[in-house]
Amino acid sequence: MTLIKKHDATGDAPREFRHQSRDRAGLLCQLEADAPEQRRWAALDLAAFSDAADALCDRLEQETQTPVREAILTSLIQIGGNPVVCGLMPLLRSEDAALRNQVIEALQQLPEAVSPYIERMLADDDADYRIFAINVLANLRHPQAPAWLQDVIERDDNINACAAAVDGLAEIGTPEAIPALTALPERFADDPFMQFCTQTAIRRIQGHGA
């Protein structure tokens, strides 16, 4: 029997990075450290400081390491509030697809804080940006989400923005959206995909086959 029982379950003595203390200033400094593991620990510990949101968002924009990015976003979700949302929204324009999608997931976790900005996001000139806003909405626990998605299919002239909104409405749409869904394919020259997804959404909303 070589399985050994060790009375200290917690591993060897902590060999943490103690170059800086775990106060706010020390953590902010450590957030810029060279070693990704140090930056990750600093990001996690900064969840305790609500005024660290700006520094975390700034770091996120430059950060390339997934574990550090995830730690930053985990802390930002815990901090929450409008400053976090304002810091995250511009990152939806990032060239980095992984970062954009991590940010979308984080925003989905902040329904109250994100709600005041939705209308502005949906009115943006850049269709890609609007689609990301719709992706946030489609998985947002906010009572107004169905109405916002319905606005998209009534107003947006980008076919992919509308298709993304229809996909969301298939899950959370209410019967009020049915006229707009019915009218939608016509606006896009009866594109076969648009026909298919609007019909699917209508059936899902009605709860029975047409």
Binding site: A170, E171, R203, R204, Q206, G207, H208, G209
Partner: peptide, 12 residues
């Protein structure tokens, strides 16, 4: 539960 409701739940 209708077929459409089942599918909606299933996707979610």
């Amino acid at each position: 539960i209708t077929e459409e409701e089942f599918q909606k739940f299933r996707d979610f």
